[in-house]
Design a protein around this nucleic acid. Structure first.
Length: 561
RNA sequence: GCGCCAGUAGCUCAGUUGGACAGAGCAACGGCCUUCUAAGCCGUGGGUCGGGGGUUCGAAUCCUCCCUGGCGCGCCA
């Protein structure tokens, strides 16, 4: 609808230039928006104000020329007004809006955004937690945001690869192995022989027991059987990593999040990618030796200080495999890469991009893209729950899903933009009250289903496309609902383009509110058959959009509650 | 000290590539169930959009300087 109008405005501008009411020149990129105030029409075009400077004329004067050239837009526009500083307000015939209902019914679950991605390859890397413990609430936020980003990109026509990257070899993993070994030997935290900075959580004890019992665990794409030998630190490490990855997989499955590819940091070494990247950086003249270490001149690419690549002990710092990993992503053909991670890692953004620029292989400057989510503060019993991973005291994602439910947990995590800090009040979320906006939205869906059941009982079917008399829909609330439903595709497109899932939850709440209000004001099933059928058609379009949007977020759309 | 992110109603937060009088939920107060689910609806009160400058026809939105909070500033990841 909006795009049709845009084309009409372009044609009008062209006619203005031909008849001399506008001087020849480039057309600025103008906006067409849906005003909040219905008095401002269905669409507001700001092109006249943008042209004012170049034309050296008053915006309203320019608007008059454009409106004259626009005419009635081939029957699309019922009325066109010039208002305020020079807005062109377009009022469409209500029949245009009710046509949206036909489109929704015709396309069903396919009603939504256009496939603007054109099938191009995009990779979304998210969660990427190290296998040293269960996923906590912060990972949950990353999982929810990352998963929905994938869904949004897929819905807009991108070929999405979901990827999980984890460190299976560094110092933290060595620490993990030592902790499990200590538990195998019956050593407890506090004991003199307990490893410094060991992981103290109860789950370490479970891993140790399984290891001693010779258990087999499956994680990602491999299986590991425990050697059961407390002296074999290497075997313990392999088993512990697999066990914790297995646990994380279970948590993610419970959250309805899946991945296509798992990449291990160790593979970057065994495949020679780290060495190759370093060689390239040295060859390009961006590295230098100092203090027995190898440095990368990241300051040449916007960093505030140079960074060590190879430590004096010969091992690499963490961001070197990161660069090698991203080079590999580039080589795998991803035109876009989106990394979703916690904002506490934001300093890696500059480093990774600097390293990729230094490689000189033609990677664009803003590649990869980052979505960084701010911290999650957990409240329980009115107090902040302090997170200490080593001590094992934190709220796990699994606890949260068990207590709050998958749907509400998801909705809470994506309801707010990633940039904002999030206070997750567990007590509040646990009360399955209407404080949980997800119920509000789901209830709207269930209510339509309930109407459908009553209609079926009365022998009224939901009408098929073309069999509805739209003139029965005379209420302003009905027209408003149709207009709101028409905005669904562009809402999803905007959310995908800006990588902002919260736009969809905001929209869902708007649709649910409009529906609940309508429901309370007006009965759908009335004595008048044709009116009942028209309203049934309308509310089922609402149901369809609610179901599509909830599905896009990975949230269920229950038929009754 | 430097960098990144935030600061919008009592609380938690939206605010669509700058757009027309700033919105929602919760909390407070007052109404609505013999009719499709009251997990709902209607109404009232409540805001110098942290503060000062600037750009613009127009700023919560962009620039700049302050203030406050979070995070990061390692040869940890």
């Amino acid at each position: 609808m909006k795009e049709r109008l845009r084309a009409l405005v372009y044609e009008a501008l062209e006619r203005c230039r031909q008849n001399g009411s506008l001087t020849p020149g480039p057309t600025p990129t103008f906006t067409i928006e849906s005003p909040v105030n219905p008095e401002h029409g269905d669409f507001a075009v700001n092109v006249a104000m943008l042209l004012a400077r170049a034309e050296k004329k008053a915006p309203r004067q320019i608007a008059e020329s454009i409106v004259a050239a626009l005419g009635d837009g081939g029957g699309l526009c019922q009325r066109v007004e010039i208002a305020g500083p020079g807005f062109i307000n377009v009022f469409l015939a209500s029949s245009c809006w009710y046509g949206v209902l036909d489109e929704i019914h015709r396309r069903g679950s396919a009603y939504g955004p256009a496939a603007s991605g054109g099938g191009a390859k995009v990779q979304v890397e998210f969660v990427s937690a190290n296998p040293t413990g269960p996923l906590h609430i912060g990972h949950g936020r990353g999982a929810a945001i990352g998963d929905v980003l994938c869904r949004l990109l897929a819905a807009t026509g991108w070929d999405v690869t979901r990827e999980f990257y984890y460190n299976d070899a560094g110092a933290q993993i060595a620490n993990l192995a030592l902790s499990v070994q200590a538990r195998c030997l019956g050593i407890e935290p506090g004991d003199a022989r307990w490893p410094a900075d060991g992981y103290q959580g109860e789950y370490i004890k479970d891993v140790a027991q399984a290891y001693l019992a010779g258990a087999t665990v499956a994680a990602d794409d491999r299986q590991v059987t425990a050697a059961a030998d407390p002296a074999d630190l290497d075997a313990i490490r392999c088993f512990a990593v697999a066990s914790l990855r297995h646990e994380q997989d279970q948590d993610l499955r419970a959250f309805n999040v899946r991945f296509d590819v798992y990449t291990l940091e160790s593979s970057l070494y065994t495949e020679g990618r780290v060495e190759a990247a370093v060689r390239q950086l040295v060859a390009n003249g961006h590295a230098y030796e100092e203090g027995n270490a190898l440095w990368l001149r990241t300051t040449a690419f916007g960093d505030d200080k140079d960074r060590v690549m190879r430590k004096s002990d010969g091992s690499y710092t963490y961001f070197v495999p990161d660069i090698a990993y991203h080079l590999h992503k580039w080589q795998r053909g991803f035109v876009r890469v989106v990394n979703e991670q916690g904002a506490d890692h934001h300093s890696t953004v500059t480093r990774v991009r600097a390293g990729l620029q230094a490689l000189g292989v033609g990677i664009p400057q803003g590649w990869p893209e980052y979505v960084l989510h701010q911290m999650v503060t957990v409240m329980r019993g009115g107090e902040e729950v302090k997170i200490s991973k080593r001590a094992g005291s934190y709220v796990t994602l699994r606890d949260l899903i068990d207590e709050v439910g998958q749907d509400a947990t998801r909705f809470f995590f994506i309801m707010r933009k990633a940039d904002s800090q999030l206070v997750f009040d567990i007590d509040l979320a646990k009360q399955q009250s209407n404080d949980n906006p997800v119920y509000y939205v789901q209830y709207a869906h269930a209510r339509v289903c309930s109407i459908n059941r009553n209609a079926a009982e009365a022998g009224i079917k939901v009408p098929v496309v073309g069999a509805v008399d739209f003139s029965r829909l005379v209420l302003s609330e009905e027209l408003a609902l149709a207009k709101l439903l028409a905005r669904y595709p562009e809402t999803v497109e905007g959310a995908a383009r800006s990588l902002e899932p919260q736009r969809v939850t905001t929209y869902l709440q708007e649709v649910a509110a409009a529906f609940h209000s309508y429901y309370n004001k007006q009965r759908v099933l009335v004595d008048e058959m044709e009116t009942s059928r028209a309203r049934l058609y309308l509310v089922n379009a609402v149901r369809s959009v609610l179901a599509n949007a909830l599905g896009l977020l990975g949230i269920s759309a229950p038929e009754q509650m």
